[in-house]
Structure formats: C-alpha cells, structure tokens
C-alpha cells in the first residue's frame, strides 16, 4: 500500500505534463479549428485552398512524424522552442485540422434557409454565425468532437518519443528501475479516469444542447 502511494507520488509529475499538453492543446485547437473551418469555407479561393492544403497535410501524415519534425527539424533552421512548446505546436496544428473538418461538415449541414431567414431579418454575417448557425453546429459536432478529445487523451502519450517526462515515460522509468508493473496499471487507471470524466462531460453537454429537435 505504501509502495503504491510512493509510485503514485512519483508519477504525479508525469501526470502534470500529460494534463498540460491535453488542456492547452484542446484550448488552442478548438478555436483555431473553428477559424480554419470558416477560412476553408471562404469564398476567397486562395484562402480556402490554403486551408485545404493545411488540413490535407495534417491529416495525411502521422502525428508522430509531425512531432518529430517540429522537435528536430525546426532547430535545424534556427527555430528553438522549449520542449513543451514544440509538442504543443505539433499537437495544436494537428488537432486544429481535425476539428476544422468536423466544424466544416457541421456548418455545411445547416440548411441554406437558415442563412436566408437571418438575412431577410437584417442580420449581418457575423451575427448570423454567432447567433443562428454556430449554436446549431455545436449540437451537431459534439459527438465527433467528443471522439477526438478522447483520442487526444491517448495521443498525449506520443510525447514519450520526445524524451519528455509525461505519465507514460515516468511509468516506464519506475518499471525498469524497480521491476514492478504497478506504474503501468496506475497509468492505465489515469487514462481511463480521464476518458470517463470526458465522456460524462460530453454527455452533459449533448443533453444541454440537445433540448430541441430539428
């Protein structure tokens, strides 16, 4: 029992790194993904083509490769980033691309009549998006966003390859040193707990935004 407590305390540092990557990535990738989806839908061709390329690049290559690229290639061209910033950059760019596609599909599923009704009532484009379109989009995208968020919890373990002391690396260090599998179990419990909490939270959100039927 004491041994377990000891292990958990040792693993707290790793937990903190993992949580940091998770929350900051989510906080940045959601709004950036939204802006990217609006840019992707823009009638200004160069902008929408640029976004299409960005999304294609991010979804078409492994996140692991993107992490390695940011971590090793950027310093070669003189861009020095702290480890955590490099990891956040790669995660954010990657997840923003996935969110952008989710939001784009959501926005496009809103019938044209909603825009027309808003327009004939005198609403401007920003007001229409903010008050009419996006609240309906949220309801539609919650399930896929929930999926991606849970993927992110697990993807944070990829920073293992960057020699950062995330939950998984700390666990492995202890396992190797003490020949005790408990840290892996603790890590599993942590990931499961995160996933459980997120699932619960998204269920609440879906209930909140699902008050009406379409």
């Amino acid at each position: 029992m004491e041994n377990l407590l000891h292990t958990v305390v040792l693993m707290l540092e790793g937990t903190q790194v993992t949580l940091e990557i998770f929350f900051i990535t989510l906080l940045l990738a959601l709004p950036i993904g939204l802006l990217a989806s609006l840019a992707r839908l823009s009638r200004f061709r160069p902008l929408s083509l640029l976004m299409e390329f960005y999304i294609w690049l991010m979804r078409g290559t492994p996140l692991m490769l993107q992490l390695l690229f940011v971590y090793f290639a950027l310093p070669m061209i003189g861009v020095m980033l702290p480890d955590i910033a490099a990891a956040l950059l790669a995660f954010t760019l990657n997840y923003a691309a996935y969110f952008a596609e989710i939001f784009r599909a959501g926005i496009q599923s809103i019938p044209k009549g909603q825009y027309e009704a808003a327009k004939t009532l005198g609403m401007t484009y920003p007001t229409t998006m903010r008050r009419i379109i996006l609240p309906q989009v949220i309801r539609i995208v919650l399930p896929p966003v929930s999926n991606e968020t849970i993927n992110l919890v697990k993807d944070t373990s990829l920073i293992y390859i960057l020699a950062m002391n995330d939950l998984l690396r700390v666990a492995r260090t202890i396992v190797q040193r003490e020949f005790d599998m408990t840290p892996f179990v603790v890590a599993a419990v942590f990931y499961l707990a995160m996933t459980f909490i997120l699932t619960w939270l998204f269920k609440k959100l879906e209930a909140h935004y699902g008050k009406y039927e379409t």
Binding site: P111, G113, Q114, E116, A117, T120, L121, G122, I132, P135, Q136, R139, Y212, E213, T214
Partner: peptide, 15 residues
Amino acid sequence: GCTGMVFQQFNLFPH
C-alpha cells in the same frame, strides 16, 4: 429593413 419574408419551408430557428 422595410421588407419581411415568409418562406415555403418556414425556416424558423430550431434552437
């Protein structure tokens, strides 16, 4: 602003 419109498909805001 002087005009109002009613559509075949109603187009109410469902939310």
